[in-house]
Every structure is written in structure tokens, then in C-alpha cells.
Design a protein around this nucleic acid. Sequence first.
DNA 1: CGCCGGAAGTTGGCTGGCCAACTCGGCCGG
DNA 2: CCGGCCGAGTTGGCCAGCCAACTTCCGGCG
Lengths: 255, 255
Amino acid sequence: MALDQDRAAGSLYRKVAADLREAITSGSFGEAGRLPAEGALAEQYGVSRGTVRQALALLRADGLVTSRRGTRRVVLGSARVQSFSELLSFTHWARSMGEEPGGRLESLVRRPADAAEREQLRLEPGTEVYVTLRLRTLSGTPVMVERTVYPPRVGELVARLPADVVSHTEPLREHGILFSDADHTIDVVAANADDARLLSCRRGSPLLREKRRTTDPTGTPVEWSQDRYLPGTVAFSIHNSLASSALSRHARDED
Amino acid sequence: MALDQDRAAGSLYRKVAADLREAITSGSFGEAGRLPAEGALAEQYGVSRGTVRQALALLRADGLVTSRRGTRRVVLGSARVQSFSELLSFTHWARSMGEEPGGRLESLVRRPADAAEREQLRLEPGTEVYVTLRLRTLSGTPVMVERTVYPPRVGELVARLPADVVSHTEPLREHGILFSDADHTIDVVAANADDARLLSCRRGSPLLREKRRTTDPTGTPVEWSQDRYLPGTVAFSIHNSLASSALSRHARDED
DNA sequence: CGCCGGAAGTTGGCTGGCCAACTCGGCCGG
DNA sequence: CCGGCCGAGTTGGCCAGCCAACTTCCGGCG
């Protein structure tokens, strides 16, 4: 599945990366084994060394291999859970795990954006936003409460969706709204009354919170969301390295 | 500081990246403005287009810019908190925020590794590990309890360190132990008795947990750590995009 | 037996070039 | 006035080559 997506991506280096990823996770090079040299791979796949290096950069970013100058690459993790090199929606993620995602719209209101929302969505003062509150389920059991703020252009489309539609991002894509980049912030928060009711937990009990701002390929913000997960249902997994990383840790001074 | 580190890194594309990062965060291209074309930048810096593209790949991974085929790159986030493109130790991270990091060793024991630890550190059955429990402070206030498991080679060095040494990674580096790659998993956990005592919170109160396995450049595991943060003190921040990402979300099935 | 030097192998980095795919704006025709 | 076509500009992708830095191993030498 993920492999097919990689292959379907078209570009050569993604195909090479997909093939190598499969070879690694199937243990072809051993638990902590060495990869063939870049040159050897280049010849094997009939591509240039530069293309192989692009492919290997993907695998390195996923934490599958290390690399240092002077010696062959080493396999780091052959048993990674699932290496989405993708920005995945809740729906897509759930499906790729073999679970059945669900979503029930609890409320949808339209109101003027407050200062924080204008800041996040880069809106003019006075602009109205659409705010949704949804309960998300995994194979029937509630796992997450999702509060999303949409700018007008997107919100108008969301408002027209049926209340029982599972995926919001898919119909949005049909209307030309693409999700390209996202910034995530993860912390802990206490359940409020709504959270407690929807997730069947006590008020004040801890929830894993993910704040997310997503932009389209032009850099325009398309959603700002606060997802609150029931502990024990999900965990977030990140890889980083000296070479390059997408993780940063910061003190909380804003909210 | 971060800039100097980037510049000191030597390679051309890192210098270009550092310069562009500064230009972006100082607002030279406007809030959601366009970057100059790759060719223009190449000429400006006197490097090839490929080098510029390497530099821009770093910025894209940090979530500073987008890119699509056909049009100039767009500035995404000019106001990022701190974009360590680095695998940062607690000590380094704290210092770069202007806070004074502290650490007090609560206990250090040596005992046979259990199954999970052997798995994580890739050790033979019967191997002994060193386990430390440390309270970490930020400018005097406790923020985190750190439980770290070291393999023998590393643990022997850690055991010889004075109890009041703030940074463990720095003296380890002097002895040739390098931290290169890390896998992080973030979730929520309830404080146990030790956590509660050290962090001055109630038993069962929620803590943000980061499980981390770090390897050296050869791919050999050098530590496996469980850090438990007091809520409200830190948050984790991640960027990802369709192009490439280091984030994955998975259901909890192991612990 | 141990240490050191050198050679071979490998990745990091950089160049220059080429073409395809895509965006965007302007021009022209209806 | 609107819509579609076209071309310039721009990024994605791929190739071939070159050198530097580094690791590893082996053999010679003390």
C-alpha cells in the first residue's frame, strides 16, 4: 500500500527508495547490516549515483539507515511500525493501520476570528471563521476530540459537507484545497467538560494534545486544529539526527 | 549561536542555508513573501544551483519555506521559536533558550538487562546495564525526571562521572561516545511515587513522556531513556510536509 | 607482538548541464 | 468582457564527473 504509493509517485529516486525500504524492512541486509555502496546500487538500478543518494536521503530521514563518510551505510531500524513519509490525515492513518475510522460532527459554528486565530490563519481583523467540533473514533471506540478552525474559503466547503462524512480532507481535495505542510505541537492538557462527555473520561483527566496548523502548497493556512487524544490510544513517533531534523523542543510561553 | 554553529559546519550549503535562514527570520522577504529563484541565489552566493538546492532542502525540512514546481518558493514561517537542525541534549537545549540547566543524580544501579532493554540496546542475554535516575531542573525549578539505561561501554563512563555534573553527553563525547540518531516516542503517563516526590506533584497526575533511543554514528545504541516532563513546562514541535517527513503516528501496542 | 603507514573503498560535497512539468501573466480572438 | 492559448520563468529530476575526507584493513617494521 505505502509501497504502491511510493512507486506510483513516478520519480525514479522514490521508486529506488521504495525498493530499498522493502529490502531493508524484510531484512535483506541483516539486523544491523551494511548496505551496498552507492555506486553498486546505482549500477544495480541503472541510475546515477546522485539519484541513489536522493533515495537514501529519504530513508535516512525516516531513520532507517545511518551514514557517515568513509564507510558503508548501516541499517538502523528494520522493524519500524509504519514509515509514512507523508502528511497523513486521521482517516488515512487509521485506514493504513487496518482500523475503521469514524467521525461525528458535534457542532459547527461561524463566528469572527479571535486574535490567536487571525494570527494562525493569517486573516484580516473581522474575518469570520468556521469552527467544527468532531468526535473521532477508531473501529467504533472514541479516541479523539478534534476542534478545527477553518478560514472562510475552506469553511464554506466544510459547512456544506454531510454531518456523517468520515474524511474532510478528501472532499476538500476534490475542490482544490490541498494539504501540503503542517506544524505540530504536542503537549498535555486536562479534559474539559465537553472532552469528558465525548470521550467518556473524567473532567481534568489528562489528554494528549496535538495542535496543528496546515497550509496548502502556496503557503496559505487552510486549517488550525486542536486534537485531544485519549491516553493509551496513540503515541507520536519522531526520528531525528545530527544531519537534519524536523523536531524542535521549546518552552511553553504561548497558548 | 545557532548561526555560528551552522557557519562553523564548514560545508558551503550549510553556510548558504544559515544565511538564508537569517534573512528569512529577519523578514527580508516579507511575511509570506517569495524567495529569489534558485538560479539568482546561486549567482548571488557564487555557487552552483545544486548547492543552493541542498541549502533550501534544509530550510524546507525545518518548515521555513514551501516549494512547488513552476513558481518561486514561499516563506512559510518567519517566526519559528528555534530551529535546531540538531539532535539536542537537554543541557544544550536549555542553554540555547537562555535558561540554566541543572541535573541531580538520584540513583545509579547496575543490573542485568531485562528483555525490553536488550531489545532496545541490542544486547546479548545476561549483559549488565547501568540505570540512572536524574532530576532535571530549569533555572532551579524541577521540570523533568530522566530514567536512562546505558549499555556497559557507555555506563562505565557515566558511573565515573561526579554526581553533580550537569551534562552527560559532553563528557561522553570527550571519550568518543557520539550521539548521532535518535528515535522519539511521545505520549502521556501518570506520575508514580518517585515522579511525584521529585517533581512535587500528586501521584497519578499526568506527565508528558518522551521515550528516546539514541545511537552513535555506527548505528550502535548508546542510551535508552524515558523522560517525564511536568505539563506546562515544555511542548514538542514538529514540522512535516508531503515531500518528506520525520513524523509518524502509531497505535500503542507495545510498552 | 604491537604500532604505524599506506592503499583501497566509501560517502560528502560541489559543479555544470540538460530536459520535463508546472505556474503565471499577457495577448489575442471570439 | 471573457476565455483560451502561448511563452517566459521556475522548480523537480536526472546525469556524469571530480575531489576531499574519512574508515578500514593489511602488511611491514620496530
